[in-house]
């Protein structure tokens, strides 16, 4: 890795919130203690908030059912692995509102303790769309989702070892052998 990403400290980031009227981001920060806007470049201008893992289920549920902008479509759930950060495993939820066409990105990051898998509460029970993506994150990054209805590997074979998208998993490239063709001479 060439450059360290700026650290996402829990204390900074509040100063980046835009002025009133309160956005959904402000409301999330207000309602769920410990949430903040990460100081990171979001080149797509999508409002982003990071919440604590213990609040993720309520936060998603609030955004879907109670918040003024009804975010009624779960666009994507994806994982990422940042080995240099304190909380290396990050899960990103992208929500979309059919009425206002607004989008919001909710992030959630956890650390792994020792050899155990990192744990995040699953939202598959409150939003069925998250079922398979969460299985995929479990498969690819080894993040365990508590209360998931059916947490199995989804893409790799059942007896696969390791989690391919973790940074410490090798790409598994095989060296290519080149033969001199017969017509090219010895």
């Amino acid at each position: 890795m060439v450059q360290q990403p700026p650290s996402e400290g829990a204390t900074q980031g509040d100063d980046e919130t835009p002025p009133p009227p309160p956005t959904d981001i402000d409301l999330v920060i207000e309602r769920f203690p410990g949430s903040f806007v990460p100081s990171w470049r979001y080149a797509d201008q999508m409002p982003t908030v990071r919440v604590l893992p213990e609040h993720i289920r309520e936060a998603i549920s609030w955004l879907r059912h109670e918040c003024q902008t009804r975010y009624d479509m779960l666009v994507d759930v994806g994982g990422s692995h940042w080995p240099d950060r304190d909380e290396p495993f990050e899960v990103t939820y992208i929500l979309h509102s059919m009425t206002t066409n607004a989008r919001i990105r909710v992030k959630c990051a956890v650390a792994a303790h020792g050899d155990e898998l990192p744990v995040i509460p699953s939202i598959a029970l409150i939003w069925a769309a998250a079922n398979w993506p969460e299985r995929e994150i479990y498969d690819m990054f080894g993040v365990e989702f508590t209360d998931h209805p059916d947490l199995r590997r989804i893409l790799t074979p059942n007896d696969w070892e390791g989690h391919p998208l973790r940074k410490d998993f090798p790409l598994g490239e095989e060296p290519v052998e080149f033969y001199r063709s017969a017509s090219a001479g010895a």
């Binding site: 450059q3 990403p5 990171w40 470049r41 979001y42 797509d44 994507d76």
Partner: peptide, 9 residues
């Protein structure tokens, strides 16, 4: 690019 992230649909 600079560090950061982007989503495009």
């Amino acid at each position: 690019p600079l560090p950061g992230e982007a989503y495009a649909a």
